[in-house]
Structures are given as structure tokens and as C-alpha cells.
Design a protein around this nucleic acid. Structure first.
Length: 822
RNA sequence: GCGAAAGUGGCGGAAUUGGUAUACGCGCUAGACUUAGGAUCUAGUCCCGAGCGAUCGGGUUGGGGGUUCGAGUCCCCCCUUUCGCACCA
């Protein structure tokens, strides 16, 4: 073969690798060091484009690199196969979600093969098949037993278009994440996982993950939103009741001039009972209740409130203060009620000004006076307490807060309390295409869990997709009608299915026991291979998927099923590929819906998978967002063509030549550079180093300055170092060079530090920090020798021109800086 | 508003972490081989000035200041961009 025919080469090696990988790997027998590599779960509803390629190509390159280092690595792949896209496809195109999904998976497996990606398909996991999702059900039952799964009526985000409930995190700017329709509020009975129980542990665990980026950890910390403070109790004499509020500033209680309750608060109805305009207030409460959450939140949202006409007693001052209802207090954070301290809180101050409510200072400025009635900005963390007697002189800070908590506890009107922004995980979906929740409702026995022996509760294939009125499962008679597992009388199945994040929260565990039909996974094997050594994926899952997976891992840990609490030791978030989009006229994330996606198929057809791999990895630092440039791809193709031609010219090299040492030095320094770069995922600079090595070799071949043996050795090293990035062409050339066995099984080359260095080095000579000349000296030249060589330079002498030399700084092997008395 | 990261040629980006700024690639320019080329190869390509010329001088890492023999890198101020959080009491 004389020309670089990427098509036949790639097909040949892809088939070979497929055969090599057909044998099942036994994970129990693992004497070698093991390494688990994993990609983010892929939603099977979307065909792959080159924007996705970066993720998988990077993972494959890492896998091959590890293999060549003798690491026993597992690189499995699974399908996040449930979810909305499949159900939408069913409605729009009349295809069954299951058929559509399984067809997609077949196509995508072919695409992975064409990228030259080596997955261990004997560990394949498909979440929409009963052998996988039955364990979602099994886990649900265990969590139900332990009180970690529960049902409650709750206001939820409702998408009128999808006819389904959305989690807070699926609402983007008040609109449905999937379809963009404005979201409204509704009350429904929903199943939840009690993730809030694990809030503290999930937070603390982040500090044990040095292999995660600070960025992702900050996002998770914000999401969990821990805040320390106190609960204070205010009595309501008119009702003979007391009311608890949460505050992070109990030290400002003397300045609480009114209370504010969320309009949804349980006491609201009784508080307004005596008012003549009660009916109007009730209507207003309903309006607030139905306002989409996202509209109600946000800094620019207008504050609206109503006076209940009832008063409460401030426990610090003994004063009667009014109780208000207002939309800026959220019903499901803290106790849904606050003490308003307008002098020391921005939100309370703007509400007080709007409604002409009194403002009272607790912390006074240390200099000058402030008239509370005209305050525009609250005093947040400054000043000194005056006018309270026992606390006078205190300054804001943790110690003062502690004193107030002690005071409240002694007085019986409060205690220290920690609150979280994190809310329980709503797992119910009013959808067909998901894991059925294993529950039966019986008129006699109530809510009855499906016994473990009856699992899996399989999703019926025959259902009707009208696209109207939500969940088609509710209309599937054979599914819904069932005998009560407890009393045997006719009963109805739960028709809600589970959020797909349930599937993806533990699939990494299934990889090590993919075919086990007796249990969720094998604990010993899991403990041997996991936690995942390297998890690779985009930043889009920074919160949800990764938080849920960490939660479920802890649950399984507490059930004694795994020996670790953190599932992913190292997390690498690669950046997205962007491209100019004709439709918007902007550079945007590459995606099919934006019309700026590049399909891999024509590209591979024209220039080959190796070209795409080289280009994708060369594009820029893998953690950054990078822009795809159609024209620049040819640079990668030219590089591979030059490599191919160099192979043909190796034979022409002379048997002996003068410059073997220079080429050897280049070879060793390239091994060093590439090894270091790949360890740190710096594929872009690794490719650059390999291009330089090829340039050096090509030059040596052209100028006949290196011997045949030296050129061949250099070329072989180049093939090895390039293999993780361009596997097909390197395997082919390796075989043509007459080597036995696969390049993938060859041992990664080592560099000799002694060979990286040269005997002679070029020193930069500066005069007063400005570059004036370069001189060559022995690598081990002393400072004095280096200085002498520098001063001997004619150019340097010219620039010194009679000036006095104050000193000369010598950095061995690098430079000499001559400093003059200017 | 709060927090984080970043800003380097026409473009994507390098720079051993304080020591030759612009590696590698795209694009562009000139030439070669071609019937032809959006193919391939060779040479050149940060900016300004001088010279026919190999070269020589000066400037340059968003802007300004500082530390240092020496700053893209460290410190301070400002500008811009991106990302995250944002009525969570």
C-alpha cells in the first residue's frame, strides 16, 4: 500500500478490535491494579455528532494510554434509555419508545465503532430493560422500608404542554427545560426520595474530593445551601398559638418590628379570620399560590403583602408586632415564616418602606446617628448594639449570635438550627417511558408495596400514545388493574414512573455486575473496582446527576452494600465544542436543534476517524470550550498523510549518519512531553509535540543526517505515542513495520533523562534584561565560564559600550543577564 | 449585587510556573510540480522603522501602577468577557 487509504485501514482495525474485545472480562479475578474509567451516561434519544465526540474520544485515548502502561482498565458504556425524547418521538412519529430507543442504540454503537472507541460491551447497561430497572424498583422498596422514600401532596411545577411535573432543576427561567412552555403550579401526590436527610454528609463529602474541580464543588455547595442560624418562637395571644421563624441573625431580634408568613402558611386562614376584607385576601392567597415559583423568586419580583390584623409578641422586647402575609416569604424554606428586621435586612427594609412599617435599629453606627425612618440601606455587618441593656456594646459576629441563641434557649423561646436550600428529590413522573413505581393502591389495605418476589413490575408494551392528557399508562387496563398483594382484592397500580436520574444514579455499580439476575450488583466486585477512578463528562451534570449519584451511593453504603461513600474519585469536565450557527448568527454550543452540528459520518468518510480524533483533541485545552473550524480539520489530515509518507521513506535512510544524537534527543524529550501531557489530559500540546517529532524525523530523512536504525526507532516511538490519539493508522503502520502483535499491547516507551539533555546548551545573554545575543557553552559549564562566554560576545560588548558592570546574573543552562550601572 | 475563571498575532492556541513571548496548527503570501486544482511539496508570515540584502534598531501578552537583575506569569487599581449564585430570611 503506498497511499494513505484511511477507509480500508480503519474498517480493518475496527473489526479486529471488535473481535479482540468480544471475550468477556472476568472482574473477580483481578490481581493487577484496576482502573475504572467512565463516561457520563448518554441519553439515547440523540444521535452523536462531532461535538459529542470530544467526550468519548478523550476517554478512549485515556483508556489506550492506560492499557499501554499495563493498567488493567475497564471502559464500559451504558445507555440512559428512559426519558422524554423517546416518548415524544412516539407521539410525533408513531414509533414505540422502546423500538425507537433500541434502534438508536444500535446506530450509536456503530458510530462508536467508527470512531475507533474500545468499549467493553460485555458490561453494557441499558436502563430501559427490565433486568436493569427492576433494581430501581428493588431499591425503591428498600428505601421505602427505611423511610427514605415517601409520598406527599406538594405544590409542584407543572408543564401544561408536556402534562407532567418538573423538578425545580428542570425549570429554566420559568419555562420547561424540554419544551420551553411557561410552567405553572399544581398540587399533586408525589413520591420523594429523602435526600435532605443526607444534606450534611453530601456537603462534608465534597471536602474529601481533591479530584473534583472547585467549580463543580462550589455549585454543589450552593445547591445544598447550608445556613446556620436559630429558630425563634413568637406567641400569638389572639389564637393561643405560637409561631416559629428561622433566622440567621437572631442577634437582631430586638429590631423585629413585624412578622411575615408565606401566604400558603397553615396559620394564614385563622390569622385573617377576623378581617372584613377576608374574601379579598383569600383570593390574593390563591393568586400567589398559583404563581409559578420562578416568577415569584428573583430579585426584581415585586413584593406584595397583606396585613392579617393579628399581632404576635416579640420575645426580646415584649412588644406586640403585626403579622403580615407576603409573597417574598417562601412556604417551603425554614418554617415558611420570618421575623422582619428592616433595619438590618434589605428585603425587609424595602417591604417596610413600601408598607410604611416601623424600622428599628439594633446595631447603631459607631459614629453619627441614623434616622431609621429614612433608611435606604440596611446595616448588615457593622455597628454596635445599643438600647437593649444586656447585649449593649456587642458587635456583629458569630460570638454575638451564639450569645443570643443561649439567651433564647434559656428563655425557652428558641434554639440553634441549621437549614438547607436543598429540597427532597421528587422522583414521580406522569409519564409512560420510565421505571414503574412498585406500589399498589387497595381500597382496603391502602398503599401497598409490591413484594420483592413480584419484581420486576414491567412496563406494558401495548399502550396508546395520543399525546393528550398526560400519562398513557393510566389508560392501560391490564397494567393498572391488579390484585392487592396483601388481601387479593381488586386494586390499582401506581401509574407514576421514576425520574431518569434514578437510573443514572447507580449505573456505574451495574457495570461490574451487568448480567447478575440475583442482585443489584456484587458487593465484593464493586469494592474492588470502585469508586470510579476517572469520570469524564460535561459540566451540565455538575449538580443533579452528580448529587443524586453521591446520595444513592451513601444510601447503599448505609445499607451495607458498598464500602465507600463517594462514587467518583476523579471528575474531569471537558468543555463543549461550539460552532457558528447560521440560524442565530452566533457561535453556540454544537447541537442538532441549533442546526450547527457536524455529523461525523461524512467527515469520517472523507478524512477518516483518526483525522477527526486528532483534530478534536488538538482543538484546544480539553477543559475549555472550543470552536470547531471546518477548514482547520485538514491540518490533522495532512499530519497523518505526512506520517504515512515518512514510513515509506524509512528504508532510504543511510546505514550510518552524523546526527543520530540530535534525533535521539528529540525522541526522548518527546516521550517525556507526551507522557506528561497525557497524564494531565493535555492532548492539544501532546499532538503539537508529536507533530514536532514528525517534523524532526522528516527533516532527518530528507537531509540524510540520521541513520536508518535511528530513524526507525524514532518512527516506532512516534507510532506508540500517537496511538491513543490516532489508533488506526498507527496500528497499520506498526504492522507494516513488521512488529509482532497489536500496538495497543506494546509497552509505552520510556525516556532517559540523561538523553534529553544535550552536551552543549545555548545561553541567552541579556544586558539590563534585554536580549542581546546567544552563546553556546558546555551543559555543565560553571557560572564563571558562562559569565566569561557571555562577556566575550561582540554584541554584548557593543551594548556595554564603556558602562560599568554592576553584576551578572547567571541561571545555569538558561541565561546570563549583565547588569550595568545605568 | 455576590462568587469564580479568563483576556497573548488575522484565527485556534503554546510558554518547563519568575528566565529566548508567539511552539504546533489554520489562514495568508511567494515559488515548485501540474491540462487544472479548494490536491501535494518548499520557503516566508507578531507589529513599526532602516536596508537590494543576510541583517540591524525599537515596540508588543486588555489598560495603568508596583515588586524584581528580569514579569504573559507575582501584588494593587481599572476595563471587558464567560460561567455559577441571586427575595433561601
Amino acid at each position: 500500500m503506498s497511499r494513505y487509504e484511511h477507509k480500508s485501514i480503519e474498517a480493518k482495525w475496527q473489526d479486529r478490535w471488535e473481535k479482540q474485545h468480544a471475550a468477556e472480562v472476568d472482574l473477580r479475578d483481578s490481581k493487577n491494579k484496576t482502573y475504572m474509567l467512565m463516561m457520563f451516561p448518554y441519553p439515547s434519544g440523540d444521535r452523536l455528532h462531532v461535538g459529542h465526540g470530544r467526550n468519548y474520544i478523550l476517554g478512549d485515548a485515556l483508556y489506550r494510554f492506560l492499557r499501554m502502561h499495563g493498567r488493567r482498565a475497564l471502559n464500559p458504556m451504558g445507555w440512559d434509555a428512559f426519558g422524554l425524547p423517546a416518548e415524544n418521538a412516539a407521539i410525533q412519529r408513531g414509533v414505540h419508545p422502546r423500538d425507537w430507543t433500541l434502534d438508536n442504540i444500535k446506530v450509536m454503537k456503530q458510530q462508536f465503532k467508527r470512531w475507533g472507541i474500545l468499549y467493553d460491551w460485555s458490561k453494557e447497561v441499558t436502563s430501559c430493560l427490565p433486568d436493569y430497572y427492576r433494581w430501581n424498583q428493588w431499591l425503591f422498596l428498600r428505601m421505602l422500608e427505611k423511610g427514605l422514600a415517601y409520598k406527599k401532596k406538594a405544590p409542584v411545577n407543572w408543564c401544561p404542554s408536556c402534562q407532567t411535573v418538573l423538578a425545580n432543576e428542570q425549570v429554566v427561567d420559568g419555562h420547561c427545560e424540554r419544551c420551553g412552555t411557561a410552567v405553572v403550579q399544581r398540587d399533586l401526590e408525589q413520591w420523594f426520595y429523602r435526600i435532605t436527610e443526607y444534606a450534611d454528609r453530601l456537603l462534608a463529602g465534597l471536602d474529601t474530593l481533591p479530584g473534583w474541580s472547585e467549580r463543580v464543588k462550589v455549585m454543589q455547595r450552593n445547591w445544598i445551601g447550608r445556613s446556620e442560624g436559630a429558630e425563634l418562637v413568637f406567641t400569638i395571644p389572639a389564637l393561643g398559638e405560637s409561631l416559629t421563624v428561622f433566622t440567621t441573625r437572631p442577634d437582631t431580634v430586638h429590631g423585629a418590628t413585624f412578622l411575615v408568613l408565606a401566604p400558603e402558611h397553615a396559620l394564614a386562614a385563622r390569622l385573617i379570620a377576623g378581617r372584613t376584607d377576608r374574601a379579598e385576601i383569600e383570593v390574593w392567597i390563591e393568586t400567589v399560590r398559583n404563581t409559578p415559583r420562578i416568577q415569584r423568586e428573583g430579585v426584581d419580583a415585586a413584593k406584595e403583602g397583606r396585613d392579617t390584623g393579628t399581632v404576635a409578641i416579640n420575645p426580646a422586647t415584649g412588644e406586640a408586632i403585626p403579622i403580615w402575609l407576603a409573597n417574598y416569604v417562601l412556604p417551603d424554606y425554614g418554617s415558611g415564616a420570618i421575623m422582619a428586621v428592616p433595619a438590618h435586612d434589605q428585603r425587609d427594609l424595602s417591604f417596610a418602606r413600601q408598607e410604611s412599617l416601623p424600622v428599628r435599629l439594633v446595631y447603631h453606627p459607631t459614629e453619627g446617628e441614623v434616622d431609621p425612618a429614612t433608611m435606604r440601606e440596611p446595616i448588615l455587618h457593622a455597628g454596635v448594639i445599643r438600647g437593649t441593656g444586656e447585649f449593649d456594646g456587642a458587635v456583629p459576629g458569630p460570638e454575638t449570635i451564639r450569645r443570643f441563641i443561649d439567651w433564647a434557649e434559656k428563655k425557652g423561646c428558641g434554639r440553634g438550627k441549621v437549614n438547607y436550600r436543598l429540597r427532597d428529590w421528587l422522583i414521580s413522573r406522569q409519564r409512560y417511558w420510565g421505571t414503574p413505581i412498585p406500589i399498589v393502591y387497595c381500597t382496603a389495605c391502602g398503599t401497598v408495596p409490591v413484594p420483592e418476589k413480584d419484581l420486576p413490575v414491567t412496563l406494558p408494551y401495548e399502550v396508546e400514545f395520543t399525546g393528550k392528557q398526560g400519562n398513557p399508562l393510566t389508560r392501560s387496563e391490564p397494567f393498572v388493574n391488579v390484585a392487592c398483594p396483601r388481601c387479593g382484592k381488586p386494586a390499582k397500580r401506581e401509574t407514576d414512573t421514576m425520574d431518569t436520574f434514578v437510573d443514572s444514579s447507580w449505573y456505574y455499580l451495574r457495570y461490574v455486575s451487568a448480567k447478575d439476575d440475583q442482585r443489584m450488583f456484587d458487593t465484593d466486585t464493586a469494592n474492588r473496582w470502585l469508586p470510579v477512578d476517572q469520570y469524564i463528562g460535561g459540566i451540565e451534570h455538575a449538580i443533579l446527576h452528580l448529587l443524586y449519584a453521591r446520595f444513592i451511593c451513601r444510601v447503599l453504603h448505609d445499607f451495607g452494600m458498598v464500602g465507600f461513600e463517594e462514587p467518583f474519585s476523579n471528575l474531569f469536565n471537558q468543555g463543549m465544542i461550539t460552532r457558528f450557527s447560521e440560524s442565530s448568527g452566533r457561535v453556540e454550543k454544537m447541537s442538532k436543534s441549533r442546526g450547527n452540528a457536524v455529523s461525523p459520518d461524512p467527515l469520517i468518510e472523507e478524512m477518516g476517524a483518526d483525522t477527526e480524533r486528532v483534530y478534536t483533541l488538538f482543538l484546544g485545552p480539553p477543559e475549555d470550550e472550543v470552536e470547531w473550524n471546518d477548514e482547520a480539520v485538514s491540518g490533522a489530515y495532512r499530519f497523518l498523510s505526512r506520517l504515512w509518507r515518512a514510513a515509506l521513506r524509512l528504508e532510504e535512510a543511510p546505514p550510518t549518519a552524523p546526527s543520530d544524537e540530535a534525533l535521539e534527543r528529540l525522541r526522548h524529550s518527546t516521550i517525556q512531553r507526551v507522557s506528561r501531557d497525557l497524564e494531565r489530559f493535555k492532548f492539544n500540546t501532546a499532538v503539537a509535540a508529536l507533530m514536532e517529532l514528525l517534523n524532526g524525523l522528516t527533516r532527518a530523512l530528507e537531509e540524510r543526517t540520521a541513520s536508518k536504525i535511528c530513524c526507525q526507532q524514532c518512527f516506532d516511538t512516534l507510532l506508540q505515542l500517537l496511538h491513543p490519539i490516532a489508533p488506526h493508522i498507527t496500528e497499520e503502520l506498526w504492522e507494516q513495520r513488521g512488529h509482532e502483535g497489536s500496538l495497543l499491547d506494546s509497552v509505552w516507551p520510556e525516556w532517559d533523562p540523561a538523553r534529553v539533555k544535550s552536551d552543549r546548551v545555548t545561553l541567552v545573554v541579556q544586558v539590563d534584561g534585554k536580549l542581546r545575543d546567544r552563546v553556546e557553552v558546555d551543559a555543565d559549564a560553571s557560572e564563571a565560564e558562562a559569565r566569561a562566554a557571555a562577556l566575550a560576545s561582540a554584541k554584548v560588548q557593543e551594548h556595554l559600550a564603556g558602562r560599568a558592570i554592576v553584576k551578572a546574573i547567571v541561571v545555569p543552562g538558561r541565561l546570563v543577564n549583565v547588569v550595568t550601572g545605568r
